[in-house]
Amino acid sequence: MTRDIAVVAFAQTDHRRTTDELSEVEMLMPVLHEVLDRTGLKTADIGFTCSGSSDYLAGRAFSFTLALDGVGAWPPISESHVEMDGAWALYEAWTKLLTGDADTALVYSYGKSSPGSVRDVLTRQLDPYYVAPLWPDSVALAALQAQALIDAGDTDEPALAAVAARSRADATANSHAQLRGSLPQGEYLVRPLRTGDCPPIGDGAAAVVLAAGERARELCERPAWIRGIDHRIEAHSLGVRDLTDSPSTRLAAEKAGAFERPVDTAELHAPFTSQEVVLRKALRLDDSVRVNPSGGALAANPMMAAGLIRIGEAAAGIHRGESDRALAHATSGPCLQQNLVAVLEGDPR
């Protein structure tokens, strides 16, 4: 059994440092309306709904139950939730469509980093016995990885600054981005990473509609067909991993068929400049590939949604006819512990 499944619509919020005038559902709901409007579908037409979010980010248990208010889950809907980035919610929805149980799926995710201190919140992801009690924040861990890359001769500070500059320059064309244009590389946050090497902290939401086969063609002029999607995880402890490489990304890309033919565009979920270096190497991307034309996570990094946004941006490029074959990547965990790769294609023009 194989079924062609495509991303047929994508929507996202304007990503902002804070949205304290809005509850999560108030932030999310306009995006749900927008993505449904693009297809003309209503909640009741959707075969399966899946979302991704994090209680720890919200500071509240079961925070996703209130977000469901924005969906209009009545009559009751077939629905699931992952405590992961929305890219994995999309993966779950993709498998649901593959089984033939549903022909359309609504996928959404959201995260508000503004209420808490996300650098500290993320320390709670770490080994609770040996690492979390030291409170090593997410920038510190990324900086350890960056230094390892510099030591290995894979990059240097000017090269990292160039990644930052290119990302924010590209983001000038992305009205949803939080950081755009020419920004100073700034002081060290945790050396060797400067503020410019780090993602903005902010709030945002995103949503995608998936559809299978002919249904996709009805709903979208040029569907972004998911030719392959796969995700892999690595060992948790940084001390057992080679931080200069991402074998899980490479394996996921292989399984997703990314190496069968070159892609023209790649949307990489690299919150830190140094992580783009790792991912380019793992994915064997050369200079012919447009990397992060949206500006990537360095321009907007709403936690739990930034990975789904990579898939959405890659798909939107295909919808617009700007891309024919694109790779989208999402990550989770410290220093790229878990990685998802999707390969999207448009019909030949």
Partner: peptide, 15 residues
């Protein structure tokens, strides 16, 4: 909820 054990997304640590 992750708050029950105080580990955010514990599947990462449990991989």
């Amino acid at each position: 909820p992750d708050f029950f054990e105080g580990v955010m997304m514990p599947e990462l640590y449990l991989a």
